[in-house]
Design a protein around this nucleic acid. Structure first.
Length: 497
RNA sequence: GGCGGGUUGGCGGAGAGGUUACGCAGCGGAUUGCAAAUCCGUGAAGACCGGUUCGAUUCCGGUACCCGCCUCCA
């Protein structure tokens, strides 16, 4: 069996992955706060852990992996948006409006992440469905002396957990020395963090032993991971920015609440995303969502491919140039997949496996970049089976690639014995195809005239016009081919009429 | 200030203690009415200083620079 090796943030080492129970490998990944469309940075951990999920399913069997990713639907930004809508006259209670907002955001999230080829996790719990468990856990922490209630708040007593700071390599004393946070006066220790806080009149809240309130951010993941995966599970993932304080606090809560378990055995953190060399931020004006890219016509497969080009523990720079390269490669792959079926070996697409070297690349701490290198080689060598298996493992669907990326080609060919036209059309309208064929005929006849007269002016004029419309023009002894490229604009083509 | 990560050829980006990464771009050639596409070939690297070693871009230490986190942003 393939041994998966993963860099464990907990030990700062690359380790052999040994599941607690190979018949039920369990992974928890911190999901989004559902207050708005997912931005591109949100998508990186989704693709990273989707890749790991697919690898785990490959190695242990699809039925033996449980992947949980939460939706954080308790949040000040959600409340603020709901309140804004209420004040703008939307009907319904504040709770209704909050629910409406989170439902709509979750639907967007699903649509956007589906477009990236990410499998849905086995479970996607929402914080609001686990408030009871959070309260029970908080009560337990108070009872065992790890937390204290004060002024409607419940705070975790950081000093009560000796390993606090171990995951992120920080000491409580150092952090206090360098702290820039304003400290609430009722905290015993400046680093103590909130498990429960009171809700004011217009904020959503739940009844609790400490009055009407809502949970702190960190407790939800501890409570849901415990409920769905148990006291100990295998992998906990998320973005590097969550390592501190979020994951540190999760560990502290869980370890103290469930002293017999040891929470997550392997912690994985993906590095952050940049855009054209800079941090993506609203203030720099380089902030965009996954939906923005999709709407610009950049397919999800391109986004996924660009992500996979960079190792997950390196910062990834999103650039237009990378998107261009990724798209060019996907087009080549699609053209190859779309080539004459008779030249390709017959395989059952749904069962073909990736070559071992691709599995090995992923098993070596998710070396997706190396996996893509292998993939390019299969393309170059025309190894249909290896390519198909690799695409599947990496989360690309051959049929979708063909529809989105395979070239439409209108081709006129002639030789001594035959001449004719062939059209292969995917994803273009009938009208566009017809115009393309018309232009092809026109170009072909102009060209034969020019070949005799040696006056190529008319041919070149038509050729330039086609190129301007984003259509690649290929002329050879065998005939003429028109291939709409990435910049193809049907409107410009039609204007040539 | 504290903590963590990084620095590979024009650009992107891997592996491996000694032997070509690879992709894009470039250059040369084949091909073409001209191009495009395709194919063939090709130059170019390991921030800096020191150590370990027969040998380091790869291991260890230091320096410089860059990035992130410490602010309920993945």
């Amino acid at each position: 069996m393939t041994t998966i090796r993963l860099t464990n943030s907990k030990t700062r080492r690359k380790e052999d992955f040994q599941p607690i129970d190979p018949s039920n490998v369990r992974m928890y990944v911190c999901g989004p706060t559902v207050y708005d469309r997912a931005h591109l940075g949100n998508a990186r951990p989704v693709v990273v852990f989707d890749t790991l999920y697919r690898l785990l399913r490959h190695v242990y069997g699809a039925a033996h992996v449980t992947y949980v990713r939460n939706f954080t639907d308790v949040d000040d930004k959600i409340n603020a948006e709901a309140l804004r809508r209420q004040k703008a006259g939307s009907p319904g209670t504040l709770e209704d409006l909050i629910h409406e907002r989170t439902e709509e955001t979750i639907a967007w999230y699903h649509a956007d992440m589906d477009a990236l080829g990410a499998l849905r996790p086995n479970q996607e719990p929402r914080a609001t469905e686990f408030i009871g468990q959070m309260i029970v856990m908080t009560e337990g922490l108070i009872a065992s002396g790890h937390a204290y209630a004060v002024e409607g708040h419940v705070l975790f007593r950081v000093r009560s957990y000796k390993d606090y700071g171990k995951l992120s390599g920080r000491s409580v004393d150092d952090m206090i020395a360098g702290a820039r946070v304003e400290v609430a006066p009722f905290k015993e220790d400046p680093m103590d963090f909130v498990l429960w806080k009171p809700s004011s009149g217009e904020e959503p809240g739940w009844a609790s032993p400490w009055g009407k309130g809502r949970p702190g951010w960190h407790i939800e993941c501890s409570a849901m991971a415990h409920e769905l995966l148990g006291e100990s599970f295998d992998i906990h993932g998320g973005g590097l920015d969550l390592q501190f304080p979020h994951h540190e606090n999760e560990i502290a809560q869980s370890a103290c609440a469930h002293p017999h378990g040891d929470f997550a055995h392997y912690w994985l953190h993906n590095e952050m995303l940049q855009v054209e060399g800079k941090k993506m931020s609203k203030s720099l004006g380089n902030f965009f969502t996954v939906r923005d890219l999709l709407d610009q016509g950049i397919p999800g497969e391109v986004i996924r491919f660009v992500f996979l080009m960079t190792h997950y523990r390196s910062p990834m720079d999103w650039t237009a140039e990378k998107a261009r390269q990724a798209e060019a490669t996907l087009r080549k792959i699609a053209d190859f997949l779309h080539s004459d079926p008779l030249t390709q070996p017959w395989v059952d697409r749904n069962s073909v496996n990736a070559p071992q070297e691709v599995i090995d690349a992923l098993a070596n701490d998710l070396n997706t970049s190396l996996a893509l290198t292998h993939l390019s080689r299969y393309l170059k060598e025309g190894d249909y089976v290896a390519l198909l298996g690799s695409l599947r493992l990496l989360g690309f669907y051959p049929d979708a690639l063909k529809v989105k990326f395979a070239t439409f080609a209108a081709e006129a060919h002639e030789n001594d014995s035959t001449s004719g036209y062939s059209v292969s059309s995917l994803g273009l309208s009938k009208r566009t195809s017809e115009i393309l064929v018309e232009k092809l005929k026109e170009l072909t006849s102009l060209r034969s005239l020019a070949m005799a007269s040696k006056d190529f002016a008319a041919v070149d004029a038509l050729k330039s016009a086609l190129i301007a419309a984003g259509v690649e023009v290929r002329m050879s002894k065998a005939g003429v081919e028109l291939v709409p490229g990435p910049d193809f604009d049907p409107a410009k083509l039609e204007a040539l009429q």
